[in-house]
Design a protein around this nucleic acid. Sequence first.
DNA 1: CGCTCGGTTGAAAATCGTCAAATGGCGTGG
DNA 2: CCACGCCATTTGACGATTTTCAACCGAGCG
Lengths: 250, 250
Amino acid sequence: MTISLPSAVLPVDAACHHQVGCSSCGLRQLCLPDGFSDEEMQRLDQLVSSRRSVRRGEALFRDGDPFHGIFAVRAGFFKTATTSVDGRERVTGFQMGGELLGLDGFDDDTHRCDAIALESSQVCIIPQDALESLSRTLPALQRQLHRIMSREIVREHGVMTLLSGMRAEERVAAFLVNLALRLKARGFSPSAFVLRMTRQEIGSYLGLQLETVSRCFSRLHDEHVLDVRQRDVRILDTQALQDLVGGTSA
Amino acid sequence: MTISLPSAVLPVDAACHHQVGCSSCGLRQLCLPDGFSDEEMQRLDQLVSSRRSVRRGEALFRDGDPFHGIFAVRAGFFKTATTSVDGRERVTGFQMGGELLGLDGFDDDTHRCDAIALESSQVCIIPQDALESLSRTLPALQRQLHRIMSREIVREHGVMTLLSGMRAEERVAAFLVNLALRLKARGFSPSAFVLRMTRQEIGSYLGLQLETVSRCFSRLHDEHVLDVRQRDVRILDTQALQDLVGGTSA
DNA sequence: CGCTCGGTTGAAAATCGTCAAATGGCGTGG
DNA sequence: CCACGCCATTTGACGATTTTCAACCGAGCG
């Protein structure tokens, strides 16, 4: 097993105060306060003081919603997606603990994608005005926000490379390697996990049809690289997976 | 004709001071100081005080170079690209006057792509330390920086949608429509321009082989949507182009 | 004047998408 | 507790788009 929920899930849409802040959060090295001193962390605690729970299938925000700030995933799993006029959706990313949601809203104070919980989740609320005012007196926060937005840009460059240069099997391999790395960084097993998303969502993210994703999984299964059963994945040959990715790009 | 050089091109690699600042730059509404008051603009002039010229084919920075700040294109045309281990390059974007280069460097103080001038160009140098310190006392600058990074993230979402969902001809149409809009915003003709990049670079950006790009141009030519001769492009039927783009996504 | 590079065009091959059908989990309701 | 039905997934066959390989052309430059 992989991603578990906190033992006590808060009521939906409840914004709760009196919570422990960033300084005592297990994800702090992977999140906004990475690299902060104790004193800086304490000042950050004042910024991130409320949370919100989102049940599986519900939206944290939707394309077009007014932007009031960003969110940090405290527990759970999200997808971000844009829906085109004809109703088809394009998944732009998957987010897990410590990752930020809503960075696309700064442009015109409007969210530019949907953020949907793929399992019951909890996010920390980071209000824009408080974030920007604290950034002005806390250079570490300013730097970290720039870093995180910059990292998102670099990540998307990587996805573009994947979409434009890799074949189906390489894309799926890259997706799994990336997922495994991120799970490992959070203390979960990088070789056995449960996919929180459907084949269709994976395909949408990777620019493939769901059938193609399924076929790739099956082929990797036949080649004894993976053991895939529905959403349960065990990586049997990490090296083979990485070779598939590195073979074409890097 | 479309993009012209400033009448006096500065010596290569010369960082020149005593230049007019943002407040008198014709591109200011499209660049960092968009929306600034006169007083704010004057404070920005102190930040952006030096320039650099880059000749056609030369790099403004390269993947792995230490990051010291970002650049605004003052004149000319750039591409950004990443080069994979096997030597193939992946174009991640094209930048023209008023657009910023180097946003991917904040993450780990290292540039994460190459920025190559596709014609002799000139950029304004925006040093990171001065940018960040001025952002702390000039909220308009802070907001605008966030907006611009956010816009880059949204732009890349659009490219991802293009790469994963559109067919070749639609991608080429979307590319041309986007280029035309940006040229128009800068006072150039949106219907007649010169491509600064090769078919291969267009293909790399759009996730297509150069032959496919060439074939798409030829087909659009045959259909009297474009008049293409090598790098000279005239758009004959703007509506047809837009229909091609909007037909599949939006 | 010939060379090189970028561009165009053609034909064959490969990958992936589309359509279709069958399987199997999982949750709901009896 | 079991049966049913829905949805996600798997698998197969076929077709379309795009890539690959190859040849040719034309402009610019030494």
